[in-house]
Design a protein around this nucleic acid. Structure first.
Lengths: 335, 335
DNA sequence: CTGAAAGCGCTAACAG
DNA sequence: CTGTTAGCGCTTTCAG
């Protein structure tokens, strides 16, 4: 840390060229003769010049950074999504700013507010799909990720939640189950709401009347909450409790697994299981768990690409991409 | 989007005060009379003024953001660390910029270079502990996280890797095992190197001569690589292959688990297992896995706090915090 | 307590 | 191809 960092002016002086020429060579824009460029490069190297991105952002109006607001990076789903987003953005020279909303609309709003001027665009997985606190327009290009918001017509990338859920539940029904339960978080997010809808649709299509005692609802996205809710649902009498269960995300699956073990229910004999969202451990446990797999990495990449395109063409028509899911049948569902 | 965002000048005009007064009220610094403040606040609200953080950063020399460079956010360890860092920084008004190095020193260098001017300080989990490509000084406050770098005297937060590893291996030996193997990634990172050292120390203390056939080394931090390496190590004859294995991180544990199942080795009867780094699924599999648990969230929080302190007192003495680990014995080790 | 004015380091016209 | 010169929107002296 000798004197503070050299600036374009310092480099220009040392290279014996004008400020503008040095700026152009350093910034990589406009025309510069090979000779001048060489002189500038040499001077920059000697001085250890490193561009100040903050100044560049202020002058150019572009920060070359994008913000990502997720519910919780600790959720393996969002961890993989972030990775996908980073993969799409990095080659284009963008930096990723990350924030957690903790699935709380108020925190989400604060995160967006804090990021908005520091980025060229935002990617957000909205915590709530409707209501007074729903995601506000940050006044910059915005891409909704994994979930949508009622009444917002913006670019989005989601998966076929309802169809995936329906398929999983149909599969359970096809194994002979009638009392098919569900372990789910609150329906605040659009994706969870759709998965619940898909579950109900499958029951209805099979002529099964839904029973509220088959739904284990826990307000949060936590395994602990799911554990408790599942425990109470499965503690009902042998004759009434579900013989098969569908879970709406990996935390719910975790909680259910804990509950089933605690109650000494054998899977799939006493309880068949099918989960939404495939995570590593589903193939590590015994028996391995049947799951609706989502193209998670691709979801992140696609969202990143969508934002990149929007940044390039602000007036392009709104695109809503929906990715297909797949059902991977494993032993837990008894097939 | 009507006209572009209102600036301090717009607010000042509307409020009928000078530019400087409006700037002070809006920026929250200097003295402003209650009356002037009220006028400014009202004008700001009417106009929908939102501060431009980029301009503020350029003028003030502080971005109120910090960068975090991790090996891979998809690693649950780093996901939790990020969460801890965010928890420590957010209350102080800092934003988190995240980058993955993919455990590659060259990418790490690029990430640091890309972030350096956009942040007030950096937190990095260095990919390499030594060598030509080792972490360079970004010229800003830097805190090393989880791992250290030879010859760099900077703030750092790590865990007791060697001691934790030794304790796990001693535990395995105490169950009567002599041929204790290890599944590990390359020793590029200081933490892995220390865990390997801890393993060797335990063998030595027990008077066991280390055998290279007991080490399954895979270059990368991936479960797939660990799987292959573990498979080959465990495929040796009954008489020579390890009867117990220690894994150096959660990806290694994952790979080993896959290999053991594939070879139909019963745990702990045919193979006792003790892992470094406790992750969710270790208690979901059968049998649950004995593990060295690290205070991961605390590691992130502590690192965040350390950076905050350094930012406040640039000349404070260098602090190296080392957090204790704990061994949680479960069924996989046969105790 | 308030006002005027000088930058922060860079990009981007605009002339030459 | 090169140089000059305004700003970007804010913080921060320095006077008043």
């Amino acid at each position: 840390m000798s004197a503070s960092n050299p600036t374009v002016a310092d480099v220009a002086e040392r290279a014996g060229v004008s400020f503008a020429t040095a700026a152009r060579a350093l910034g990589g824009y406009g025309h510069v003769s090979a000779k001048a460029r060489a002189a500038v490069d040499a001077a920059a190297a000697e001085l250890g010049y490193r561009r100040n991105d903050v100044a560049r952002a202020l002058a150019s109006g572009s920060t070359r950074a994008v913000g990502l607001v997720v519910g919780d990076v600790e959720n393996p789903f969002f961890a993989t999504v972030s990775r996908g987003v980073a993969d799409a953005l990095e080659p284009a020279g963008y930096t990723l700013l990350l924030a957690n909303s903790d699935e709380d609309p108020a925190r989400e709003a604060r995160a967006i507010e804090a990021l908005r001027t520091q980025v060229d665009g935002l990617l957000v997985a909205p915590a709530a799909s409707s209501g007074a606190t729903r995601t506000r327009d940050p006044g910059k290009p915005l891409v909704l990720l994994d979930r949508t918001v009622q009444g917002m017509t913006v670019d989005s990338v989601t998966v076929e939640n309802a169809a995936g859920a329906t398929r999983a539940v149909e599969h359970l029904i096809a194994q002979g189950h009638r009392r098919v339960g569900i372990v789910t978080s609150g329906a605040g997010s659009s994706s969870t709401a759709q998965r619940i809808r898909g579950y109900r649709a499958a029951l209805k299509a099979a002529g099964i009347e839904a029973d509220e005692r088959w739904v284990a609802l826990n307000p949060e996205f936590t395994a602990a909450g799911a554990h408790t809710a599942a425990l109470s649902m499965l503690s009902a009498g042998r004759r009434t409790r579900p013989t098969a269960v569908f879970t709406t995300d990996n935390f719910m699956t975790h909680g259910l697994w804990l509950a089933a073990r605690e109650l000494r229910l054998r899977v799939p004999q006493d309880l068949a299981v099918a989960a939404f969202d495939d995570v590593d451990w589903l193939t590590l446990v015994d028996p391995p768990v049947t799951a609706v797999v989502q193209p998670v990495m691709e979801l992140g990449r696609e969202a990143g690409r969508l934002l990149l395109r929007r940044l390039a063409e602000p007036d392009a028509p709104v695109r809503k991409i929906r990715l297909a899911t797949d059902l991977v049948v494993r032993a837990s569902s008894g097939a």
